[in-house]
């Protein structure tokens, strides 16, 4: 395996300056110069509202983008350039060292095959396990993800399982070949709250056991807080804030992160007359607009925010914020409360 000199041996995935546009007539930029990395045993939470480009990023890593996608920049997986791989290598990669789980397990599972058969098929392709040995491993995997009576359940078809069970089966299939990277794209969005918590706990526990890296994509801040070690917040195709999960979620350094966190009401505590909404909508093509792309919706905008785009500036402790105001100690929540900054 080609290992460029000086590379971080624990690095699993690194994106450098990744841009993706879709061509139809003109080109619309969906991701603009995204750089991030995930190390062994680490979960990176990628948050941002619908349409901001999260799934596009996940699909780019798996080389699952449609043919009208224009990709630029570097995608390095286990030290190798994904964009330079031939079709055979890519097929070995998918479901092997990188696995993906989706929002809707029903669309990813084959309705006419038992879940046991679907897992043994993956095992045959990627590990060479066959016959009884593969079935035994499938039973083990279903047990691992908390499915009771796995010996019987391997014979079930997807429609015989509840939504939460299906998501567990899909996770079992995803981890069957011992992936180094698991991409989870909104894995809990379609589930009930009580089941969501279980799936999030399962992912956290599995990561501990299997020490894989996880890219956890979600628009749900609380879900991200349950599993992520680090968080990257995306807005209009760019990373606007990045840092350790606890610090970032408890003390955001970008007005958009703060807005997302504050627009969710709590179940205890005093009721507010109105929720703190972020005004406006993400406008299409704002990845290319001049100035800060959050500017039209930002309550802290100052002169100049609409003219020049702020860089993703390092603000210490592994934090970075793409905001002109994010100097060392400026915080949107503190500023909103009128505290001295």
């Amino acid at each position: 395996m080609k290992q460029p000199y000086g590379i971080d041996r624990d690095e699993v995935l690194a994106l450098e300056d990744l841009s993706v546009g879709f061509v139809h007539g003109g080109t619309s930029t969906v991701l603009a110069h995204v750089s991030l990395s995930i190390r062994r045993g680490e979960t990176l939470g990628l948050v941002g509202e619908s349409g901001c480009g999260k799934s596009t990023l996940g699909r780019a890593v798996m080389r699952l983008l449609p043919s009208n996608a224009a990709v630029d920049g570097e995608i390095r997986l286990l030290g190798r350039d994904v964009r330079a791989m031939d079709d055979r290598e890519i097929r070995r990669l998918r479901g092997g060292s990188v696995a993906m789980i989706f929002q809707n397990p029903m669309s990813a599972l084959n309705p006419v095959l038992t879940i046991g058969r679907q897992i043994t098929e993956a095992l045959e392709t990627h590990t060479g396990l066959r016959g009884r040995a593969a079935t035994a491993r499938a039973v083990e995997l279903l047990h691992l993800v908390g499915i009771g009576r796995p010996v019987d359940r391997v014979h079930d078809y997807p429609h015989q399982l509840s939504g939460g069970m299906r998501q567990r089966a899909m996770i079992a299939m995803a981890v069957s070949c011992d992936p180094k990277l698991l991409i989870a794209d909104e894995p809990t969005t379609a589930l009930d709250v009580t089941v969501q918590t279980q799936i999030l706990d399962l992912l956290a526990a599995l990561q501990e056991k299997l020490s894989m890296a996880i890219l956890f994509i979600s628009h749900d801040m609380a879900a991200v807080a349950s599993v992520a070690d680090r968080v990257a917040v995306m807005y209009a195709g760019r990373i606007v804030e990045q840092g350790q999960a606890t610090a970032l979620l408890l003390d955001p350094a970008h007005p958009y992160t703060s807005g997302l966190l504050n627009s969710v009401p709590s179940v205890d505590g005093a009721k507010l007359a109105r929720l703190q909404a972020i005004p406006g909508n993400v406008s299409a093509g704002s990845a290319e607009a001049a100035g800060c792309s959050f500017h039209p919706r930002c309550r802290f905008a100052v002169t100049g925010c609409d003219a020049e785009a702020p860089p993703l500036a390092d603000i210490g402790d592994g934090r970075a914020s793409r905001c002109w105001l994010a100097t060392e100690d400026w915080r949107p929540d503190a500023a909103a409360r009128g505290l001295a900054t």
């Binding site: 499915i147 706990d201 399962l202 807080a225």
Partner: peptide, 21 residues
């Protein structure tokens, strides 16, 4: 089961067990 970011972070401190479905 309701999770807000702050309580979700606290919950992570406890031991990780895989609960049966």
């Amino acid at each position: 089961a309701v999770r807000d970011p702050a309580s979700a972070i606290q919950r992570r401190a406890r031991t990780l067990d895989i609960a049966p479905a």
